[in-house]
Simulated scan of single mutants.
Amino acid sequence: MATREAFLAKVKAAQPAARPRPEVPLFASAGGDLRARFTAALEGMGGNCLLAACAADVQLLIEERFGADTSICSAVPEVAGTRSLSADTPPASLEDIDVGVVRARFGVAETGSVWFSEQEYVVNALGYIVQHLVVLLDPAQLIDGLQDVYRRPDFQSARYAALVTGPSATADIEGVLIRGAQGVRSLTVVWLTEGEQAGAARSFGV
């Protein structure tokens, strides 16, 4: 038996007997309005929240914030992108995209985080390689805290999962904060009920 196989065999033989995982209790909720807590936490991390009355407003919001000629790659049916997206899209081809649009499966009030899996991103690079990320979030899909995330069946079944809190940011030893150094420069959460269609009056705001 080769040295590597002999070593691994010894490690395997020395494993302790299996035992059940301990039961981890849920901590008490901080209470309060989940949406208000989420907004405060996200803004504290450099992100922001806006309200759209309908899907058409999201397109207008993007044009107002980033310009009418902005390149958009959208992973949601509510927003038409200028670049098509499918599971076969090469990740590197998104390097020149200004705005990525994706819908979060849910948000976490405790941290202001939004949760994505490979299903939401379609191409995982969408969440990191674009300049700005616009996230649609149904207010009904807010959960209290991080502990609740790990108890969700969609978290347990996802092949890929990411909790994203605000834009990318880093600070050097002199305390200079730089956004976008390792990911998106801005993250905007737009409150929009899932399945909301175009046609309602415009209503932007927190």
Rank of each mutant, 00 (worst) to 15 (best):
R21M: 10
D148S: 03
K10E: 14
Q182V: 12
E110K: 09
D138I: 11
A125C: 05
V190W: 01
V184N: 04
A13E: 10
P91Y: 10
R202L: 15
A104N: 02
V79L: 05
V184L: 02
F155Y: 14
R21Y: 12
G46D: 02
A52Q: 02
A2E: 14
R105F: 11
D57E: 15
A2K: 13
S29I: 02
Q131A: 14
G107P: 13
Q59I: 13
L136C: 10
T193Y: 08
A171P: 02
A28H: 09
P139C: 07
P20R: 04
Q156P: 06
G195P: 10
E63L: 07
Y128R: 11
L50D: 06
R179N: 09
L94Q: 02
V164F: 02
I178S: 14
F7S: 09
A198Q: 12
I178C: 07
V76I: 11
I62R: 01
P90Q: 03
F116I: 03
A13W: 02
L133D: 03
F116W: 04
A40S: 13
V102F: 11
L192K: 05
G145H: 07
A6F: 09
D98I: 02
E78S: 12
S113C: 14
H132F: 07
S74M: 05
A68N: 12
L137P: 05
L42I: 12
L177T: 08
V101D: 00
R105Y: 06
G195N: 08
A125R: 14
A68M: 09
S71W: 04
E120D: 12
Q59W: 07
R19Y: 05
A9T: 08
A2C: 10
A92I: 15
A181T: 15
C73W: 00
R152W: 01
G31A: 01
W191N: 01
A171C: 12
S186N: 01
V164R: 02
Q131M: 08
G44F: 10
W115M: 15
L192H: 04
Q197F: 05
A161F: 13
E110M: 08
A18M: 06
P25Y: 07
L26C: 00
D154N: 11
D154C: 06
Q59G: 06
V102L: 08
L94R: 04
P16E: 00
R105C: 01
G32K: 05
R202P: 06
G32A: 03
A52Y: 01
A109E: 04
S86D: 15
P16Q: 03
